[in-house]
């Protein structure tokens, strides 16, 4: 056992942090690789809206690399508040069948707030959800985590909704960005009611704003 492991075990044995010493070093991230596709995605992963939800919205888009090519092996995860802005979430996003071990899908009633969708051969993903409620000081947004082959450390971004113009001026993140960069975080409303397009550009022209929470 190496020294860092021992420090970690000792701190854990105390059930609390190593007082007066450095925080434990985090386990480094690695790429999700090319072959997560039979392990992480699950049926109904993008169907977050309960069957009885009144106003469902579709959020979808393409993931593109620095050459503009689609990224067909990205994995998108979404996490969001419910329609009232609540963040309690609920278990059961990947509810399992105790009879045959397969995936049952969500129970159709509880809102779990979590989506996981792999991109298809076109680099496209879709989620069907409810528009999240606002949180004090923040307009509604969906948090996005992007994984991909070639991406050694996942990336966070956010989907904001184009109609919340007034609230956007008060949002600390949006307010800190110039117009061109801010635009990458705003979904585009499409013809169909409740349909929003949100593309993710990993690099280059119109590169999506990615976020750092670690300061």
């Amino acid at each position: 056992m190496t020294a860092p492991e021992n420090t970690r075990d000792q701190a854990a044995a105390d059930g609390q942090g190593p007082h007066g010493s450095e925080p434990l070093q985090p386990t480094p991230s690695h790429t999700v690789g090319p072959f997560y596709g039979y392990a992480l995605p699950f049926p109904g992963g993008g169907d977050v809206a309960p069957a009885n939800a009144a106003d469902t919205v579709t959020v979808h888009g393409y993931v593109r690399d620095g050459s503009g090519a689609p990224v067909p092996d990205a994995l998108i995860e979404l996490w969001q508040a419910d329609a009232d802005g609540g963040l309690a979430g609920a278990p059961g996003s990947m509810r399992r069948d105790p009879v045959d071990g397969g995936h049952l899908g969500r129970n159709g009633v509880d809102f779990t707030g979590f989506a996981r969708v792999p991109t298809d051969a076109d680099g496209h993903w879709t989620a069907r959800t409810v528009k999240p409620g606002a949180r004090p000081g923040h307009p509604p947004y969906i948090s996005v985590c992007v994984f991909a082959r070639g991406l050694l450390h996942h990336l966070f971004t956010r989907v904001y909704f184009p109609e919340d113009t007034r609230a956007h001026t008060d949002d600390p993140l949006l307010a800190s960005l110039d117009a061109e960069r801010r635009e990458t975080l705003l979904a585009t409303a499409e013809g169909a009611t409740g349909s929003y397009r949100f593309d993710i550009r990993l690099q280059g022209e119109k590169e999506t704003v990615f976020l750092d929470f670690h300061r």
Partner: peptide, 9 residues
């Protein structure tokens, strides 16, 4: 081609 050029915000 899969890493952002801009610093994280």
């Amino acid at each position: 081609l899969r890493h952002p050029h801009r610093p994280l915000v």
